[in-house]
Amino acid sequence: MCLILFALEAHPRYRLVLAANRDEFYDRPTAPASFWDDAPQVLAGRDLTGGGTWCGITTGGRIAAVTNYRDPRTYREGAPSRGRLVADFLRGEMTPAALLERLHREGNSYNGFNLIFGDGSELLYFSNRGALPARVPAGIHGLSNHLLDTPWPKVARGKEALAKLLAARDEPAPDDLFAILADRTPAPDHLLPDTGVGPERERLLSPLFIATPTYGSRSSTVILIGRDNTCTFVERSFNGAADHPRTVKFRFTIALPVTFPVR
């Protein structure tokens, strides 16, 4: 994922509202979201190159999503797949706190990443690029290719739009969230971050929804977890200008009660 906007315990009807865009090269093979044949409790898309995923949830309420930390100066070829972190957590039984300890010990073997993960009792955040690990507090949050809530223009714009939507709607619809994620407005030059890719690429990567000839937002995902433990998962996938968007939708009841603590 390259942009995750989420509201934790910030809406009367929903414990979690998450809207995220996955940015990737269009030619990277990808399977759309579904329940996995080899782990039927896991609902997620699948990166067919690395074998992992960028965002998913299980019928038991485990949830995880990853973004890359953009820093081409420290990128290493052959580092382990960051998408595997999400897939392994979703498939496994490791507690979030145990994964946090593991990431503390092993996180530096990966290229830069941010991981949001939880099991319904808490939602944790870890980055291997220097951020303080955290139990994510209630509120509106945004994560792109820097650290949690770094106010990049797309993060600030997305958080503001999400906050306005949730304040205005008793029942936010997935289409409302997709509309936020579809925003192609580039950031003004003076607000562009400097991640080492040059100003032209920074500009191309600055909207919430990225569209370049070879690289861009491949999918938008919306996850709503209600206070009644129903989960609505909708994924809209794109493949550049070549295809029309495809949408898959799932709705199920999470087996274990979701009780993210309010701080």
């Binding site: 979030p96 706190a97 145990a98 944790l124 303080l132 690990p133």
Partner: peptide
């Protein structure tokens, strides 16, 4: 400070 703060927060999370 970063190192020990990081350790302390992990402990707080791990031990609830």
């Amino acid at each position: 400070t970063d190192d020990i703060r990081n350790s302390a927060v992990r402990i707080i999370i791990r031990l609830a």
